[in-house]
Design a protein around this nucleic acid. Sequence first.
DNA 1: CTGAAAGCGCTTACAG
DNA 2: CTGAAAGCGCTTACAG
Lengths: 344, 344
Amino acid sequence: MSKAPAEMDVARSGIATAHDVAKVAGVSQSAVSRAFTPGASISERTRKRVLAAAEKLGYRPNQIARSLISGRSRLIGIGVGNLRNPFFSESLEALSVALDRAGYRSLIFPAIERPEVGSSLYDILNYRLDAVVLISTALSQAFSEACALAQVPIITFNRQSTDPNISSVVGENYVGARCLAAHLIAGRHDRYAFIAGGAESSTSQEREAGFADYMAERGLPPPMREESRFTFEGAAAATRRLLMSASPPDAICCVNDYTALAALNVAREEFGMVVGRDISITGYDDVPMAGWPIFALTTYRQSCDDMVDNVVRMIDELKQGQGAASKIVLGGELVVRGSTRTAR
Amino acid sequence: MSKAPAEMDVARSGIATAHDVAKVAGVSQSAVSRAFTPGASISERTRKRVLAAAEKLGYRPNQIARSLISGRSRLIGIGVGNLRNPFFSESLEALSVALDRAGYRSLIFPAIERPEVGSSLYDILNYRLDAVVLISTALSQAFSEACALAQVPIITFNRQSTDPNISSVVGENYVGARCLAAHLIAGRHDRYAFIAGGAESSTSQEREAGFADYMAERGLPPPMREESRFTFEGAAAATRRLLMSASPPDAICCVNDYTALAALNVAREEFGMVVGRDISITGYDDVPMAGWPIFALTTYRQSCDDMVDNVVRMIDELKQGQGAASKIVLGGELVVRGSTRTAR
DNA sequence: CTGAAAGCGCTTACAG
DNA sequence: CTGAAAGCGCTTACAG
């Protein structure tokens, strides 16, 4: 039994095109395109025939060609920094799943602090991304301008930009840090400290301000302060400096859970302290590990899923051409566990 | 001062094309293309002029158009599963950075166990990926066939497939598990257990076989056995079953670090055991957390970076048309820490 | 509802 | 070295 010419072509070239399907189905190439375009003007009968032929040839519309002509790639760039922080890996996973459901694909790229000119950071813009999401990453002026030129909207996740043209989804950091401060004060500690991230991070700034302001309002002296640079080793070193000082703190508010986990390790293993008795330590985020029995970290919960849902909604809105950037702040809640004492 | 027509067009349409640049530079559109193609036949003088015009207009070649015509997208699909396991998030980050350096972009997609037909899993193939890398994910027959049809090579990372056409990069699981078995036996324990992942995982199978074979060779009874399904809660439950049994083990070999961390939590916090004295627990991978003082997990190290480098090399080779799939097995090393006892 | 045709923004033989 | 032209695989007015 001899095959139809179109099928033979396909067998030879490997990947079927709309043209091949059209030949097999006995319709025009336009009809093939319409069969794969939801809402396109095509009869049910034709559609069925095209789909049958496509099935037989293993045809699927080439997204690259589609993107070229439509001007939209359905690709979202996601800038990721330090995935060792579980909040970021959790966010990335949740975001990619949510985008996937909404019909977008995730193009991840390493969000380096100071990219060289002509680095790959800019290369991704050549894929005509529908949007760029930066997960907990500082936004360089150069990259921001490149995105504007390429007409790619930027959304910062868990970070804020002062630029009114940039959308963002963040937690209520100032409020959350005040909550943690109030909780620690209720435990009647003697000396308070804050382990920050880095000065360039809006999130770190806001949490530190909330904590320090609350202390000041209660007439307490300014808390001791160290920086972690958001790394485990940085946070461990910051904790050591704090605990080796002449009058060490007995309450440490850390900029996030990852940092707090480092502080907890050092206090317990290097200084032999019982966390929750000799010293109280708080985090921020409520990552799954914070709930591990061995840590039992008191923290302020941010819902990664809520944040992600808002990002996806923003992207959908941007698509509809409702151009304005928006800034969303989401609530959270205090989660008290064993790493803080509540009474003397 | 009036602008040249080309510049005005650009200002209007937004994104400059090679045509716009050609007009401004006073050359053909082909010349513009050549200026951006390394090794293309073009004089230095023309190239300079084109680059200057491109700079002025903020032009960068549209990768979508480039991909369409060249048939190669420079896009690598990365299937990710459970990023809560730090070995996977670490691998993902290392892989995306390495691919980036090699000139590829990473398209991540949720690697669901049993995808529905027509799910997004198949949609990514329409981007004409240069390759797909599956990080610790089981490969479904349907997806494998779809990739073959779309002519997209598959590389499994930290997993093996029996299909000879599929490339893989894995650690020496059988050897590593034997090492861990030898180490535990040297500590003279009474009863041994193995917490596996799932039966469909080649990695879990190999490690379990290595462990059990070594025990058998030493004339020891078959170790107790539980499954974790690779989740924290699954591993915690498995540990509970083990420790609540009539004759509980005093040595547990876990399929990976993430699982071992759960076992350690349960043994310490729920059963009040001192890990490394009352019970020995081992992991596999040597993720950063394994080295945290609070865990001090004995484990078998796999170098994520080595594995990633091999994946990138494979992709480069596949590009050159050296079609054959290859299977690479990488060595590792035992890392002894405090979670296992070495003498009674 | 359907097909022929134009065109998305590039790369790459083909002549010169 | 350079330009005109064909074409990658689609979508989408435009007629019918």
